[in-house]
Design a protein around this nucleic acid. Structure first.
Lengths: 237, 237
DNA sequence: CAGCTGTACTTGTCTAGACAAGTTGTGGTG
DNA sequence: CACCACAACTTGTCTAGACAAGTACAGCTG
């Protein structure tokens, strides 16, 4: 199953590493395709294949006649770019998370907003209630549910770097591979108004999310409320 | 400005036409790359470039050692999948769009919410104000701004299938390749309340979007308000 | 100085091959 | 019949070039 990495993948990884390390400043030009071909001892075609993937993943843009332009120095693109809290809040803010309650083992909520698979219904679930802060302002109230497939020791161990996804990936080999969501605008309830320190009925962004994991039929579920008065929810803007 | 279509684009269009016309049943195999190369009097490399675009746009899948598999007969896959109104509203609803005003040529709004590139500031813009309906309920109010790079005849011609993106792509070779957005929850103004037939201050989802096009430095901009009481905004859920 | 022109760069498109690696069916072997 | 090996396909990766087309800049021209 282990295939040896292709040449264009090596070039892709090499450039990606340099890009995420900030070797090339945002807006600057990468070495030209011919230079890269010499540098990696290959042909322009192969270099172009690597560059095309970097474009697809949002690391660079290309401009005919000019060169390949570095799009951003962001550290954590890729898989988590569709979620990671620190990514979602427009960049450069001090980010913090607190737990409203400790992680708990419980039954799935009755009338859960998502349909569960048989494998999920068969086990109980871990419930997380977290508040996310940006620059010490509460901006997100998040309820997360994870099917308890041998995750009992998450009750006692802290999350790796405070990140649920990183913990699931590194300690339990459960990678998040895709996300689906529904978006709504709702008015703040008394509880949410208290959390965010805003008036009752203040418009909030409400999201229902289902994360697909590397284990088929296994999902992570989230319901989140966002107070967007000070901070927008953005992707790459 | 009109560039003659490239060979791989001709192949792409030819195959796409056949695919949307249902020449190849869903799940069947396309002719092999070698066969297509002979058929189009070109090399495998060029055929592969066309096929790669068809994969990107969701028309086909490829399987190593087997062939190129037809994914579906649907008319509007791919490019529009990250936005296309009919895609965004959870499936199976009758969708309709009306114009609040005819398409107009105007100056960019002063204090535009997006920073413009020099190329964009140099031209005026096409402004669209549209209401989107699902099952005859108004669910979206959309303001769209397109830099007028030789698009004057859009003022007199109708949109292809009512789709702005398809029109830009097919008539002006301006493909949408990526989208960035900011999300907010806001309270309805009097105007929005009138459009949606809801109470003042009803929570609405507000999005600011920038679409990257195949022409560098050229974007399409949208501001949209969504009434989410009856219909959520979703992706693949 | 403003504007144009040519040149040296860049990426985009394309040719004509080669070999690697995955899939499928045929035919032989136990 | 079940199983395996092999041949004939497929797509994936890669080489080594060519020319087209867009960009940037130096230097000339009015």
């Amino acid at each position: 199953m282990l295939t040896r990495p292709r040449q264009y993948q090596l070039i892709y990884e090499s450039l990606k590493t340099q890009l995420t390390a900030g070797v090339y400043p945002k807006g600057s030009l990468l070495p030209s395709e011919n230079e890269l071909a010499v540098q990696f001892q290959t042909t322009r075609t192969t270099v172009r294949q690597a560059l095309t993937e970097l474009v697809r993943d949002g690391y660079i843009e290309r401009q005919h006649g000019r060169g390949s332009i570095v799009r951003s120095e962001r550290q954590t693109l890729g898989l988590l770019s569709f979620q990671g809290f620190s990514e979602v809040v427009a960049g450069g803010h001090a980010v913090r998370t607190t737990f409203l309650k400790p992680i708990m083992l419980q039954d799935w909520p009755s009338a859960f907003v998502f349909p569960l698979t048989d494998a999920e219904r068969a086990v109980d679930c871990l419930a997380l209630e977290r508040i996310r802060y940006a620059d010490e302002h509460p901006v997100m109230l998040e309820y997360t549910f994870v099917p308890n497939v041998g995750l009992d020791d998450m009750l006692t161990n802290d999350l790796l770097d405070g990140s649920l996804f990183r913990t699931l990936h590194q300690r339990y080999q459960l990678a998040i591979i895709d996300m689906q969501q529904r978006l709504y605008a709702v008015g703040a309830t008394a509880r949410q108004a208290a959390v965010f320190g805003c008036a009752l009925h203040t418009p909030l962004l409400y999201m229902e999310r289902r994360y697909l994991t590397s284990r088929p039929g296994l999902h992570v579920y989230s319901q989140l409320y966002c107070h967007t008065d000070k901070y927008a929810i953005s992707n790459g803007l």
